[in-house]
Structure formats: C-alpha cells, structure tokens
Simulated scan of single mutants.
Amino acid sequence: MTGRLPHTLRSDARDNRELILDAARAVFAAEGLNAPMREVARRAGVGPATLYRHFPTKEALAAEAFREQMGACLTIAEEGLADPDPWRGFRLVIERICELHAHDRGFTTAFMTAFPNAMDFAAVREETLRTIAELARRAKDAGALRPDFVLDDLILLIMANCGIQAASPAARVAASRRFAALAIQALQASPRHAPLPPAARLAPVPPHTTVRPTRHHPGTLAGKTS
C-alpha cells in the first residue's frame, strides 16, 4: 500500500491540473481574463490552495491554458507564409486568425498581453508576429497589400474582432467571418469588392457597459513591416 501511495498522489495531481486547465479555458472563453481565479477553482471542483499550488498566478494559468491556441496561431501564420501567392496566404491568415479569436475572448486577451514571465508563450507569440510581418512584406512587394499596412493594423483587427457581440457563439463566428472579409477588402491595394459572407445576428451592447482597452507591450509591434 505504501509503495503505491506516491504514484496515486502524482496521478491525482495530474488529474487536478487537467481539471483546472479545462475549467480555465471554459471560464476565460466566456468571461475573458478578468474572470476571478476562484471561479476557475469552483468550475474545476478544487480548492483555491490546489489551484494556486499548480498555477501561482493568473498569467501562468492563462499561458498554459492557451498554449494550444497560441501554437495554432503560429501554424496559421506559417501556412500563410508557405503559400506561393502571398496575397492568398495573407487573406488566409486574416480569416483564420479572426475565426480562432472569435471562438475564445480569453485567448484574445492572452494574445494581446506580452506575458513577459511566460517565456514560451511570449516566444511563440513573437515568432507568429514575425512570420506575419514577413508575409505582409511579400504581399506588399507583389503589389497586393496596401503599402501603408503595418503590423499594428493586425492588432487593431484583432481588438475589433474581439469586440463583436452576437446572440450566440455560432453567430459571433459568422460575424467574425464577415468582418474579416471587410478588413481584407480594406487592406487590398486595389479592392475588388468581392461578395461578403452572410450577415450574422448581433447582440446589442448592454447600456452602461464600459469597454476596457486591452494593453499590449509598447514597442513590440510598431514598425515591424514598415
């Protein structure tokens, strides 16, 4: 019995960790990163002490919870860069990144935050932005992307996409697709005004709602594609 006890404790710890991460993804997706840690613990069915033993800070929890989505962002950027047609690749990146962020408001906030202490997360984020910057440069050289585009314009798109209020998650994704199409037309050097995706049913913003701006590290984005 005593020989199996350490293994049992390790197994329980792994189970708790996965419960916490699943709960964090659900809570952050619904409420964003402003959701309290105690709500994550409640959703996971663990005590606050257990939560903080695994993840001492909300930054550490969010970085681990959204590691998969951050990797997906990098994959999208790399697939766009690999396309022999840089404008087609750029459109793919805008469309898929907007849709990815539309699924999860918490991930948008995590992406926009530098997380300087979460080195792996920050490194993948910076690699994603560098890859998109290179793709944008190629699309400009091909005469397809407007020459005054800078990487901060992508950040503006992500922030605006995050602000979509819709009647359901499916409607939010549909609205995001339409928004991405509008953005792509605005960014094209010679817009052709292709047909937009169908409009989605949007939810009105409740009265007295305060929209808080999302911060990102100053100086990490500006001028990378100029």
Rank of each mutant, 00 (worst) to 15 (best):
residue 103 H to L: 15
residue 209 T to A: 07
residue 110 A to I: 00
residue 131 T to Y: 12
residue 212 R to G: 10
residue 159 M to L: 12
residue 203 A to F: 04
residue 117 N to T: 15
residue 101 H to I: 04
residue 181 A to F: 04
residue 97 I to A: 05
residue 166 A to I: 02
residue 128 T to P: 03
residue 134 E to D: 12
residue 93 V to N: 07
residue 102 A to M: 02
residue 191 P to K: 12
residue 182 L to H: 11
residue 131 T to S: 13
residue 129 L to F: 13
residue 182 L to D: 03
residue 128 T to L: 04
residue 102 A to W: 09
residue 177 R to M: 09
residue 180 A to L: 04
residue 192 R to M: 09
residue 211 V to K: 04
residue 178 R to V: 11
residue 128 T to C: 10
residue 152 D to S: 07
residue 122 A to Y: 12
residue 175 A to S: 03
residue 82 A to F: 05
residue 148 D to G: 14
residue 163 G to S: 14
residue 153 D to L: 10
residue 185 Q to V: 02
residue 200 A to L: 01
residue 108 T to I: 04
residue 188 Q to Y: 09
residue 206 P to Y: 07
residue 141 D to K: 11
residue 89 G to I: 07
residue 88 R to H: 14
residue 207 P to M: 03
residue 86 P to D: 06
residue 138 R to S: 03
residue 104 D to N: 11
residue 188 Q to N: 11
residue 114 A to S: 13
residue 91 R to N: 12
residue 87 W to S: 09
residue 129 L to T: 07
residue 194 A to V: 00
residue 148 D to I: 15
residue 125 R to Q: 12
residue 169 P to T: 08
residue 189 A to R: 15
residue 167 A to V: 14
residue 111 F to H: 10
residue 110 A to E: 03
residue 149 F to N: 14
residue 144 A to C: 14
residue 175 A to L: 02
residue 189 A to C: 15
residue 118 A to T: 05
residue 84 P to G: 04
residue 182 L to C: 12
residue 92 L to K: 13
residue 111 F to G: 05
residue 186 A to I: 02
residue 189 A to Y: 14
residue 199 A to H: 06
residue 178 R to L: 09
residue 173 V to K: 01
residue 159 M to R: 10
residue 124 V to F: 00
residue 114 A to Y: 12
residue 128 T to I: 04
residue 124 V to C: 06
residue 173 V to N: 01
residue 101 H to S: 05
residue 105 R to N: 05
residue 135 L to W: 06
residue 126 E to K: 09
residue 104 D to Y: 07
residue 90 F to K: 11
residue 98 C to W: 01
residue 156 L to G: 14
residue 103 H to F: 13
residue 151 L to N: 06
residue 209 T to E: 01
residue 85 D to T: 11
residue 153 D to N: 11
residue 202 L to K: 04
residue 90 F to S: 07
residue 84 P to A: 08
residue 200 A to I: 02
residue 180 A to I: 08
residue 147 P to R: 12
residue 191 P to F: 13
residue 161 N to M: 03
residue 143 G to C: 14
residue 186 A to K: 11
residue 134 E to K: 11
residue 169 P to D: 08
residue 171 A to H: 03
residue 211 V to C: 05
